[in-house]
């Protein structure tokens, strides 16, 4: 069981990296990588929110939305699975709000350092995407928890690596037209290629 979870974690951090292999969360990845400090802050916020929302969405899906999930209420034939999108996004948006309020109250230091990034995360597709993948691959609860957390770590690694490359790239003499978006995409491609070298690592248990 533990080996299986470790293997899942390694797979979602390195091999199926949520950003470099699944292309999720690109908008904020490209938008916020200019400064390495912001990149770290945003990455931490993503880890945090993913770790909470993925298990929460798992529970809601398991007890309310799945076909037959309402059996405990006495409606075994009800199937609400078509509501998945709207419920997941509502859960994510409200949890982000909740986390924001709690952090403002109890950890004001962390709150000010993450600043505007927390609300932005609500519409980051990495968060919704992780919940949807969790749903599609039919993970159980510990798997959902590990998957959420390690997807966050993967995203964090990718944005920090990219941000570090951008710092160096500032001094490069690029042809006109290639700078900006174009070179950012190509750089990301090269990072993705490096991550592909992890493919094939597997802990069998």
């Amino acid at each position: 069981m533990v080996e299986h979870l470790v293997s899942l974690a390694i797979e979602s951090i390195f091999i199926n990296n949520i950003l470099l292999a699944m292309f999720l969360g690109m908008c904020s990845f490209l938008g916020c990588a200019k400064n390495i400090k912001t990149a770290i802050g945003l990455g931490l916020a993503v880890i945090f929110v993913l770790t909470i929302t993925t298990p929460a969405n798992w529970a809601i899906n398991h007890f309310f939305l799945q076909p037959g999930a309402l059996a405990w209420m006495g409606f075994p034939e009800v199937d609400l699975s078509f509501l998945v999108f709207i419920v997941f996004i509502a859960v994510i948006a409200s949890q982000v709000q909740l986390v924001e309020m709690l952090m403002e109250k109890f950890t004001p230091g962390l709150y000010t350092s993450l600043g505007i990034f927390l609300p932005l995360i609500a519409v980051n597709c990495a968060i919704l995407g992780t919940s949807l993948f969790m749903n599609e691959r039919a993970y159980n609860f510990p798997e959902a928890l590990v998957f959420g957390f390690s997807s966050g770590i993967g995203w964090f690694l990718a944005i920090v690596a990219f941000s570090a490359v951008l710092q160096k790239l500032k001094y490069a003499d690029l042809p006109k037209g290639l700078d900006g978006f174009a070179i950012n995409m190509i750089t990301t491609g090269l990072i993705a290629m490096a991550f592909m070298a992890f493919a094939g690592i597997k802990l069998t248990g």
């Binding site: 978006f181 491609g189 592909m196």
Partner: peptide, 17 residues
């Protein structure tokens, strides 16, 4: 695979620019 698409889009945007 993943890296291909990043590079294709990068080159296309370069061309467009």
């Amino acid at each position: 695979l993943a890296p291909g698409v990043f590079i294709v889009i990068g080159l296309l945007v370069w061309l467009e620019n």
